[in-house]
Structure formats: C-alpha cells, structure tokens
C-alpha cells in the first residue's frame, strides 16, 4: 500500500542539463522491445509454406492489422501500417506485462502514453497537410464559421490529452485496484481473477482503443 505514488528514478546531470529518468518505465519498455525483437527473429527464422505456431501467430497479427489499416485509410500504405502496428504491439505487451511478478506496466506512467499520443498527433497532422495541402488543411479549422477556430484548436489538442490519459488512467487504475484488493484480502483467491480482468482483458482492449484512435485520427485527416 505504501508503494502507491513512489516512482524510482535516475537523476544525473549531463552537458549542463538536469536529467530525470523514470527507472522502472525505461527498463520495462526495453523488456517489451526485447520481447518483440526476439519474437520477430524466432518467427521469421524458418519461414515455410506450412507455418510453425510462431509464424502463424505473426501472420495472424499482421494480416488483421493490415486489413484494419487499409480499410480505415482507404489506401494501402506500408508506412502507416508499420506505424500503427508498432503502437499496438508496444502497448499490448506493455499492458500485459504487469501479470508477471516483479514487472510493472510502462503504460502506467503518463510519460509513455503522452509521448506516443503526441507522436500520433504529429503523424496525423503531417499527413493531413501532405494529402490535402496546407490551404485546405488550415481552412478546415475555420469550419463551420471562422470564429469557431479557437474551439477547433482546443478540440484538436484535447484529442492528445484524452487518448493518452485514457490509457494511463485505465492501466494505472487497474494496477492500483489489484494492489489494494490483494492487500485487503491478504492475497487470497481474488487476485488471479483481477489480473485476468484488468491485466489481460482491459489491457488488450485499451491497447486496441489507443491504436484504433490513432488510426481514425489519421484517416480523418487524409480523407
């Protein structure tokens, strides 16, 4: 119970900057990345016509997301596909990692979700300018009437806030509930079910929601 709100940190000075790093988040993110690199290497080591289990898992994941991206954007673009797929894989395992003892979710740190939210924002607006041209892009801020501009602007910015706080709040909330209930029932019976619900179920849904929203924001900009 006492561990709520405590963030282990690395603090050091480098080239005149005071740098604070959240230790746990960094290590856990690297573990997630290592997992996917290992998975990719193993799955593609011997690609065959009749796939082994790893290869078919990879094919299933890629096939599903390829369909979703092509369907939402109305065009087949490998760059968007790899961006969207990367977000999903990163957040999916990040959300699930908490069910392994001694590991914690990097997504329960607002810095992780906010940075990916900002990245999605930049990609969607860059694509908007590229596909529609700067003039048309700016014109859309003045719809339906020109003095709606400030509200449209806040509306766009609020997308970044909402997408990142949604994931953060759900994962952080889930892990705190597990912690508190485990403490209240002296670790009897309930915790495995809670891990099943908040870890596996909510974690998967929220990773999917984050990714789908990034995709929808891009598709709204380029259509």
């Amino acid at each position: 119970m006492e561990s709520i709100g405590v963030v282990p940190r690395w603090i050091f000075d480098l080239a005149g900057f005071h740098i604070v790093l959240n230790k746990e988040t960094l290590i856990m993110t690297w573990i997630v990345m290592a997992f996917w690199i290992l998975f990719a290497l193993l799955a593609t080591k011997q690609t065959r016509l009749i796939p082994n289990p790893l290869q078919s898992t990879a094919e299933l994941l890629i096939g599903t997301w390829d369909d979703l991206v092509t369907d939402s954007l109305g065009l087949s673009d490998r760059r968007y596909f790899s961006f969207i797929m990367t977000i999903f894989l990163l957040f999916w395992v990040s959300n699930l990692i908490g069910i392994i003892p001694f590991l914690s979710e990097p997504t329960s740190d607002i810095n992780t979700t906010l940075s990916l939210g900002v990245l999605g924002f930049i990609v969607s607006h860059y694509s908007g300018i590229k596909f529609k041209g700067l003039k048309q892009y700016l014109k859309e801020y003045c719809e339906p009437i020109f003095f709606m501009m400030p509200l449209n602007l806040i509306g766009e910015l609020s997308k970044v806030v909402s997408i990142s706080f949604r994931l953060f709040g759900n994962i952080m909330g889930g892990s705190i509930i597990i912690l508190v209930v485990t403490y209240l029932v002296y670790s009897l019976v309930l915790p495995p079910f809670l891990y099943g619900f908040f870890g596996l179920f909510v974690g998967t849904i929220q990773a999917f929601v984050f990714t789908m929203l990034s995709l929808v924001y891009i598709s709204v900009q380029i259509r």
Binding site: M1, I4, G5, R166, G169, N170, M172, G173, G174, I176, I177, V180, F201, V202, I205, V209
Partner: peptide
C-alpha cells in the same frame, strides 16, 4: 457487450484512481 461494458467502466476506474490517491497520498 463485454468489451462495451469494460470501456464504459473507464469513468468509474478514473474515479477509483482519484479516490485511492486522495485516501493514500
């Protein structure tokens, strides 16, 4: 239904998060 309900639970989870923070810290 399950996915929809789980997402509809998010506001309650936010409330829980704030409540626990207010109690413990």
């Amino acid at each position: 239904m399950l996915v929809g309900q789980a997402v509809a639970q998010t506001p309650a989870i936010f409330a829980l998060l704030v409540a626990i923070m207010l109690i413990s810290i």
